[in-house]
């Protein structure tokens, strides 16, 4: 365990960009957990007397048309946006990796059916598919999670299938058979741990994408509904005021959204270095 920690420290000290991404990620996670304590104002409290104030010492990110504090709303929204992204990515990781492993390892009909399923999903414009799923299942946070999970599924299937297919006939898999491993143990103990590094990179890239997707759905009015604080809704609400000069209403939630996606993309490389034992020295 201490060796793992030492390795993580080594990777972070070697790569300052990864360190920055980790710091940013930690900040986001803290905001998600501690949001209600940290937020300076009640995110739902309206006060028309303070409406549309530009950024000031009292309201760092300004206030919106109903006089709500934008900084507080952004902070409170972190938990919801991260929650949706984490749940969706966890779902597509579990099912996508399991399906991809089965396709790549067993081949034959498994492979054909699962790959066609992935192709079918990929054939749609993914955001439109997500819209269709939410519209059909109903407007709820759970359905945003399912829709985001489904459109991300093919990426995990493809990563797991390609990696399992390469390793199916690797020497160490043959050796594992001789050591008494059955199919399931070979998959879980010998192939799965070896596809974790590429899968984790996929997770990290997907996370940013899942946040964008959830925000996008809310932006067009599907999924999360006002007055719930959510980055996508806040950008949508602020968009109408950009022309009239009240830039801060859309700018700050949009900026945070961008930072979150940026942070996850940078995290990908760092995660791979930490998980892949070949980088250990």
């Amino acid at each position: 365990m201490s060796a793992t920690l030492r390795h993580i420290r080594y990777v972070l000290s070697e790569n300052l960009v990864t360190l920055g991404a980790f710091a940013l990620f930690t900040a986001f996670v803290l905001l998600a957990v501690l949001g209600p304590i940290v937020a300076p104002y009640d995110p739902l409290a309206t006060d028309t007397a303070r409406a549309m104030q530009p950024p000031s010492a009292a309201h760092w990110f300004g206030t919106d048309a109903l006089g709500r504090d934008i900084l507080s709303r952004i902070i409170i929204a972190t938990r919801l946006d991260f929650g949706i992204a984490v749940a969706a990515v966890a779902l597509s990781f579990v099912f996508g990796i399991a399906l991809g492993l089965a396709a790549g390892f067993f081949g034959g009909w498994w492979d054909r059916i699962i790959l066609r399923l992935a192709d079918t999903i990929m054939a749609f414009p993914l955001f439109v598919l997500a819209m269709g799923i939410v519209a059909a299942l109903g407007n709820s946070v759970a359905n945003i999670v399912y829709a985001t999970a489904i459109i991300n599924l093919p990426f995990y299937i493809r990563v797991a299938r390609a990696e399992a297919n390469v390793r199916r006939n690797a020497g160490f898999v043959e050796a594992a058979r001789l050591a008494g491993n059955g199919d399931w143990r070979i998959l879980s103990h010998h192939i799965f741990p070896n596809i974790l590094p590429p899968a984790m990179v996929q997770v990290s890239l997907n996370m940013g994408w899942a946040i964008l997707n959830a925000a996008g759905l809310s932006f067009i009015g599907l999924g999360v509904r006002p007055p719930t604080p959510e980055w996508g809704i806040m950008v949508a609400e602020g968009a109408t005021y950009i022309i009239s000069g009240e830039w801060w209403v859309a700018f700050f939630p949009g900026m945070v959204l961008m930072l979150a996606v940026f942070c996850f993309n940078l995290l990908g490389d760092g995660l791979r270095d930490i998980i892949d034992p070949r980088r250990r020295t």
Partner: peptide, 22 residues
């Protein structure tokens, strides 16, 4: 793999790198 004779026939592989789980 589950046969009682599995342990009685074993093999040393040609490529020592490829035959070890990384």
């Amino acid at each position: 793999a589950a046969h009682p004779e599995r342990g009685k026939i074993q093999m040393v592989f040609q490529d020592p790198t490829d035959s070890l789980n990384p």
